[in-house]
Design a binder for these strands. Sequence first.
DNA 1: GATGAATGAGATTTCATTCAT
DNA 2: CATGAATGAAATCTCATTCAT
Lengths: 204, 204, 204, 204
Amino acid sequence: MARVTEEHIEARRRSILEAAARVFGECGIASATMADIADAAGISAGAIYRYFPSKQDLAHACFKEGAAQIADLWGQRAAESPDPMAAFYAVAAQSFEDLGTPEAAAHTRIMLENFLEVTRSGDQPLRDAANSEHRHIIRGLASMLYAVQSSGRLPEAVNANHLAEALYAFWLGARIVRMLDPEFDTDAQLAAVSSLMIAAAPSA
Amino acid sequence: MARVTEEHIEARRRSILEAAARVFGECGIASATMADIADAAGISAGAIYRYFPSKQDLAHACFKEGAAQIADLWGQRAAESPDPMAAFYAVAAQSFEDLGTPEAAAHTRIMLENFLEVTRSGDQPLRDAANSEHRHIIRGLASMLYAVQSSGRLPEAVNANHLAEALYAFWLGARIVRMLDPEFDTDAQLAAVSSLMIAAAPSA
Amino acid sequence: MARVTEEHIEARRRSILEAAARVFGECGIASATMADIADAAGISAGAIYRYFPSKQDLAHACFKEGAAQIADLWGQRAAESPDPMAAFYAVAAQSFEDLGTPEAAAHTRIMLENFLEVTRSGDQPLRDAANSEHRHIIRGLASMLYAVQSSGRLPEAVNANHLAEALYAFWLGARIVRMLDPEFDTDAQLAAVSSLMIAAAPSA
Amino acid sequence: MARVTEEHIEARRRSILEAAARVFGECGIASATMADIADAAGISAGAIYRYFPSKQDLAHACFKEGAAQIADLWGQRAAESPDPMAAFYAVAAQSFEDLGTPEAAAHTRIMLENFLEVTRSGDQPLRDAANSEHRHIIRGLASMLYAVQSSGRLPEAVNANHLAEALYAFWLGARIVRMLDPEFDTDAQLAAVSSLMIAAAPSA
DNA sequence: GATGAATGAGATTTCATTCAT
DNA sequence: CATGAATGAAATCTCATTCAT
């Protein structure tokens, strides 16, 4: 089985990563065993170590993968949409809805586990990586809000940057509660926030 | 005599619970060992089993304990304050600030671990317990907002219930990001939200 | 089984150490498994870790134990014997004979494995420990030879110190070859060395 | 064509053997991995199995190789030198000095590992092979001593055969201690032994 | 009632070896 | 023939839990 193409190797790496995300999401990083992941990926446990040096590295790779996907989601939608405010609603609504899929739910859980590990271990590079992820999204959100403010639909008295942070926090918190409580109506919450912003818009 | 014994038992139970919260918060539930907890509580590992049937039960008891404390915080402050809106700011600001203390940080982490376990295990009673906790807080928040709305400082177009949920989500998400990123300025975010609500207030 | 006496613990430690020496001697440190040692000691593998933090530490403890026994042997005999030269023959002959016992053979093998590890790892403290052992014996040997030289039975032209080192090297090498080759006649060699020294004695 | 292939095969075999000796000497047989050896030999791990059926066989081949080199050393020098006693000093001094080179140090270590395995496994052919090696050297040494004795420089009372064995043991032991302890002055020891033999020489 | 030594069931990780390419 | 990805069988070490003292 030697002399395999580069793509084959990359594909194997990805399939391990996907299996790991699935299993980690289901069982938690600590409880999941390498054997579980190997089974899910259809290979032997030992084979994983050709692609990832340790369970911890595999978990980190899963986290980065998930973070990249989330960042993509925000970046893509923001670029697509002509109305910046609508983009926020679209992305938020989309990601809330995605929570129903096992992948997105798993990613949310892995992200939280990563958060827990980072705040506990005090590993600064890891912390920086985690921070840069949310800062990236907040920056995007803030630039949306600046555009809204420029168009006169957000009062000057509101600090766009800080509101972007608050919206990010809302989005993160809502995802969490929503996973726990399916009756937690994220769409209605989005609508409430929206109506608040409309009400706050300087009357033309 | 029996009375004294019972008190003694309860005191022992509490000291174990406190030690467990401390250790679970620091190390994570999976990594913490019963020996760690026993050391922190100043007893032997075997003795814990007289008070809690298993590590898992001990962890559940910690969750409940933490949830009760958070609920107390909200209930107490809300009752104290004459101005409902101010109460929200006070509690939120207080809890953001508390994140600097090891106890509050540990509680936040334990709550998240609880969340993770609940969404994974599908254990309905546990899920209900977790849900009832945030619903309790949201109810309090909603009644504050109704009061604000009644006083004419919040537009009728905004659904107070859903806004309460959104504020709760914001509060939860902000606590999380703040633990990761000390530069995440929760006070400024509260101010931004506040200024938005003021701007949205029906002009007298 | 708690609240065991200090002696019981020490006894358990010793029984593990003895079992380990037996098994390490038989199989080699690398090949021996903790399960083998646990079986030999009549306990579970996990229990060993209460007494020794790792397999490596256990191996080192075995080595030190063996070294201490050897040093005792030299020290004791040297003190007992009025004739220093006879003491050397006695100790050497004794230790050559001992090679027939499993314990002594095991110790010789463990010592060699320790030597191999030390020269490979470059761990200086370990190296120092190993060196101090043979230096101790050589010092004893040298003081014997000085006494012999003082009594005029060894020419002044011979450096007693260096001859002591040579005798130590001979003793070590002979033990090794003897284990390999039962026909290697260590007594005859001792006699040959002895006759050489007698021949070298300044004629009265 | 067939001839070329055969030479090629032999060359490959030798390069693997050399790489294995290097790696085994550095890491020890148990710790060395087939991958390490393959890297050192510049081939793939799987290819080794075309030349040697198993790791153990490879190790045995290394032993034999090392033994042959040592025997060569003694045979060559002994033949070269007109004065047999000088030959012993030359070979011994040379091999002590060589211990500074990685190759010679590796050979000494491999020899010891071989010794350990042989005395443990009870594999008689292996034991015989190891024995025949030192007997070969001892025979050479003994014939030197006979020559010395014939020339009247060694008393008849000394058994040349047994003294040869003792010198061999000294040489082996000194090599070992010297590797551990660089301050172990093998030249001075040789000189001490030499002075003892001179003193023992029947006064003309 | 408390203790802590012991158990025993894994979990991660490593490699010799094989064999499809 | 060589390659090196994959296997699968350990081996070390960790802990929740039990129970003799």
